[in-house]
Write a protein that binds this DNA or RNA. Structure first.
Length: 889
RNA sequence: GGGCGCAUAGCUCAGCCGGUUCAGAGCAUCUGCCUUACAAGCAGAGGGUCGGAGGUUCGAAUCCUUCUGCGCCCACCA
């Protein structure tokens, strides 16, 4: 079959993926092999593939495929996250725009119906896209955080924590998203510097005089004020403490109090206290026993409680605008300053977050955090790169209770039922409504109590309160603790972005110890962020993110995988450039053409000449031994998750050593055959290279594997065993490098003297001890350039009127050219070289003459310096000899 | 304000538990080649006093101090 000069991934990728999948190669069931488990960081169920997904899933696939080739039972569990707030926001928008429906007009059941419609339509798209990338997930295990069994586990978790007293309901100041009308965790609030205004407002005393001026960015909240606070040490306001001032416009009297919290230096030194709308004010209010007046509704409007009628019902920002003219008119506005400040916005809706008092469910983090922190600090769970331990530690040492209730519908509904008896609210937390009812009957003594008498909590759980169970629940670890979770748990490695270290990684660790008593994974590999060339994070709004699917089409999955991995050190950001994928595509093409070359060779039983046979045997030996060293590197790179290094090592070996040197060495002459032993050895070698490269570039390696030989059914590249690093002879490998170096040097001379390739050197003459042995043994001097050994020449030929010399290692070489060479230029070069060598010698001798060096440095180091000295002396002698020869002309 | 990290070739980075893998890789640049696998290619070359200044040491890109310039995390003052 004729092979095209270009490799076309489109033809092969879909075919091989279907082949692998139909053969069940991705499937894992427990057996007696060692397991290797990864659970995917579940993408948002309605998400689409972006660069970040491609990066971390490529890494996971590499690790999984490597483990499979290492003979382990590799299990990669895929799945999706219901992503409560993000998905609900999308569904709400979809309903509004497509169905002309408002969430407020729908019942919970109706809304959930639509949400599932949406999920059925868009959910799982991303999993399909992962297949295009080559992800070898066990698709039969595909999980979803709202699957019935998963849902049940989340409920169990809630009941369990409640029973252990690690979960409570309380009124706390929370971050409120007035658009999504839900509470947000601290991590879901994004702070950014924004332009604002500082209003200086005069609160007058009841007699209409004096009073105090305060500064605020939020004049619309003055109606929720319950006091003015000053620092007790502030002389300016001493007299005022204990007196009463009036809130402008509504003239409600409030006291002036003293509290250390107030900064004398800042603003006017007087602070309005608004406990309902500010965390710190809330705390000050608690200290002084002040009341709380909440003037902002759940959707961010001014409520009746603010009592200033013109702004009641208005949006908080609109109300703010109305305050300026109103305060001016009443004579309370002193001035307005422009002001830079940090404003917190909702990660999901981008709305300005409102601090608000709210009754929510919280997880007590103290006892959960301790083992989780210990595990990482003591490296029972290893982080790659380890520097993320610091970030983790600072967070874990400052844990605050985790608010896990959300005022949404899309999620696991909180399993708490309420019954009001004699004005007192009783709470029943249970896995099912029936159990709650039974408990309610017991506790109230009302045997005829019905379900309808109980009211279930309306809220659902934070999405992270379900995904923190991921490594347990995907193996049904709550329902069947003695089932296959025993085999797969703890998982081996988690691959994820460091941006969710708190949201997810830390919490999975806590859940692992809390619910399983063990770590959820042995290692965590943190990927960096994928950024553009300007270091900007890739985002939809910037439009700087390449279309992932288009990339796969343009460069092939292998090309993209190469591109992403070639510059992805653990934790380091990737400055993505399509150029990287182009390199990957080019590499595929290189492999493809190596295949074409080999497949095009005629074969013969034995080599044409003895020299050919010797050379080929030597070349094969060299490849095998060097391959051993490369595999050893790859293995050690994998151990420390230096995946990028492993790939680049193989890349260099394949491109430079295998293609540029080895294939050129054994390549038969035009229309000449290659001997069968060499041919077979080359196919074997190439096959091994494909297996070694397979984890990184699965498609092309599988394709070439099958092109190289007829393979029996089931004899696929991805089913092989990874090549083992064998023995190698270091001295031999070094001699080969010297020989290569000689040839490179000759090429350099030819290049510099513009001797065309078609016009080869008449003769290159060389001499040197170690290189000589190798070159003689191999017949390599016949290879790329015609070389002969100086000592083999007749005396007359030794006179080299037109020669150049160079040094490689400790050997000196001469090359003769037909053309007259530029003697002056050559002399200048030699002079430069001799100067360098003399400088080098001086530094070496300075060390050797230093008694303290000779006395205190270890013997091998001193010995090495002595060798350097001898080498340098020899080189200088040779160079001077060459210069004398040139000067004679 | 508290903490962490980074600074090495034009660009992106590796090396960093001191001493021949020590000044490296890829990309970019330059030179010469459409040579019978591949121009998505081949053969070569140039380019860095390892951010500045001190210190420890026989010896520092590597350890310490400090300065400068970046980046990130946490907290957040009205």
């Amino acid at each position: 079959m004729e092979l095209s000069t270009r490799y076309s991934p489109a033809d092969t990728e879909a075919r091989w993926y279907a082949h692998w999948e139909s053969r069940g190669y991705f499937r894992s069931v427990p057996d007696d092999r060692e397991p290797f488990t990864i659970v995917i960081p579940p993408p948002n169920v309605t998400g689409v593939l972006h660069m970040g997904h491609m990066l971390n899933n490529t890494i996971q696939d590499i690790l999984i495929r490597k483990a499979r080739l290492d003979g382990k039972n590799a299990c990669w569990v895929p799945g999706t996250d219901h992503a409560s707030i993000a998905t609900e926001a999308k569904v709400v928008r979809w309903l509004r725009e497509e169905k002309k429906l408002r969430k407020a007009d729908l019942s919970r059941e109706e809304f959930m119906g639509y949400a599932y419609q949406w999920k059925d339509k868009y959910g799982g798209i991303i999993l399909e896209q992962l297949r295009k990338l080559g992800a070898s997930c066990d698709w039969e295990r595909t999980a979803f955080t709202m699957d019935p069994s998963y849902y049940r586990d989340v409920i169990r978790m809630f009941v369990d924590l409640y029973g252990k007293g690690k979960l409570y309901r309380g009124l706390r100041m929370v971050n409120w998203d007035p658009e999504a009308k839900t509470v947000l965790s601290n991590e879901e609030v994004i702070y950014g510097e924004e332009q604002s205004q500082l209003f200086h407002i005069h609160y007058k005393k009841q007699d209409g005089t004096d009073g105090v001026v305060i500064a605020t960015q939020r004049p619309e909240t003055i109606f929720a004020d319950v006091a003015i606070a000053v620092n007790p040490k502030d002389a300016r306001y001493k007299a005022l403490v204990g007196q009463t001032v009036l809130i402008p416009l509504i003239n409600r009297p409030i006291p002036v109090i003293a509290d250390d919290y107030v900064d004398i230096e800042f603003g006017t030194g007087a602070l309005k206290i608004t406990p309902a709308h500010d965390q710190n004010d809330y705390e000050v209010g608690q200290r002084h026993g002040l009341e709380i007046i909440d003037t902002i509704t759940d959707d961010g409007r001014m409520s009746e409680a603010c009592t200033y009628q013109p702004i009641v019902g208005k949006d908080r920002f609109e109300a703010r605008k109305m305050m300026q003219p109103a305060l001016e008119a009443s004579g309370n506005l002193v001035k307005i300053e422009d002001y830079h400040t940090n404003i917190g916005r909702s990660e999901r809706t981008n709305t300005v977050v409102e601090p608000k008092l709210s009754l929510q469910w919280f997880v007590k983090m103290q006892s959960l955090g301790e083992p989780a922190l210990k595990a990482v600090l003591e490296e029972e769970i290893k982080f790659y790169p380890p520097s993320f331990q610091n970030l983790y530690r600072t967070w874990m040492e400052n844990l605050r209770d985790w608010c896990i209730s959300r005022q949404l519908w899309w999620g696991q509904r909180i399993p708490a039922w309420y019954y009001t008896q004699n004005g007192q609210e009783l709470v029943f937390v249970a896995e099912t409504a029936e159990e709650a009812l039974a408990a309610a009957r017991r506790e109230t003594g009302l045997a005829d109590l019905q379900l309808a008498d109980l009211r279930q909590d309306e809220d659902v759980l934070d999405t992270w309160a379900s995904s923190w169970l991921w490594p347990i629940s995907v193996f049904d670890g709550f329902e069947k603790p003695d089932g296959e979770i025993q085999y797969y748990y703890p998982t081996n490695v988690l691959v994820t972005g460091w941006d969710i270290i708190f949201f997810w990684v830390a919490r999975m660790i806590m859940a692992g110890y809390e619910f399983k008593g063990r770590r959820p994974f042995e290692s965590v590999y943190f990927t960096g962020m994928v950024r553009d060339k300007l270091r900007r994070k890739m985002s939809k709004s910037l439009g700087n993110s390449p279309d992932a699917l288009k990339l796969l089409e343009d460069f092939g999955a292998d090309g993209v995988r190469y591109g992403l991995m070639s510059s992805a050190s653990a934790g380091g950001d990737i400055l993505f450039d399509e150029k990287l994928c182009e390199n990957g595509r080019n590499f595929c093409n290189k492999l493809w053409n190596a295949l074409r070359l080999i497949k095009g060779w005629q074969q013969t039983d034995t080599a044409e000449t003895e020299a050919d046979a010797r050379r080929n045997a030597l070349a094969i030996r060299w490849m095998r031994e060097k391959f051993s060293t490369v595999i050893a590197e790859v293995e050690s790179d994998f151990k420390s998750f230096r995946i990028s290094e492993a790939l680049l090592g193989l890349y260099g070996f394949i491109w430079d050593d295998f293609c540029s040197w080895y294939l050129e060495m054994i390549k038969p002459g035009f229309e000449k055959p290659v001997d069968k032993p060499t041919y077979e050895a080359t196919l074997d070698l190439f096959s091994d290279l494909m297996v070694a490269l397979h984890p990184f570039m699965p498609f092309i390696t599988e394709e070439i594997w099958h092109q190289l030989r007829e393979r029996a059914s089931g004899d696929d590249c991805m089913r092989q065993r990874y090549p083992k690093a064998g023995a190698f002879d270091k001295a031999f490998l070094e001699r080969v490098e010297t020989a290569k170096d000689v040839i490179s040097k000759v090429r350099e001379l030819r290049n510099a003297n513009r001797i065309k390739p078609k016009d080869p050197l008449r003769m290159a003459v060389l001499d040197g001890e170690s290189a000589r042995a190798l070159l003689a043994e191999s017949g390599w001097q016949e290879m790329v350039v015609k070389l002969a050994f100086l000592s083999d020449l007749q005396p007359a030929e030794k006179d080299l009127p037109n020669s150049k010399s160079f040094i490689s290692g400790t050997d000196q070489f001469f090359v003769e050219f037909q053309e007259k060479i530029d003697v002056a230029a050559e002399l200048a070069k030699l002079r430069e070289e001799v100067e360098y060598q003399r400088g080098f010698l001086r530094s070496v001798e300075a060390k050797l003459n230093n008694e303290r060096f000779v006395g205190s440095a270890p013997a091998p180091v001193v010995e090495a310096e002595r060798n350097k000295q001898a080498d340098a002396l020899a080189r200088i002698a040779m160079l001077e000899e060459s210069m004398r020869k040139l000067e004679q002309e």
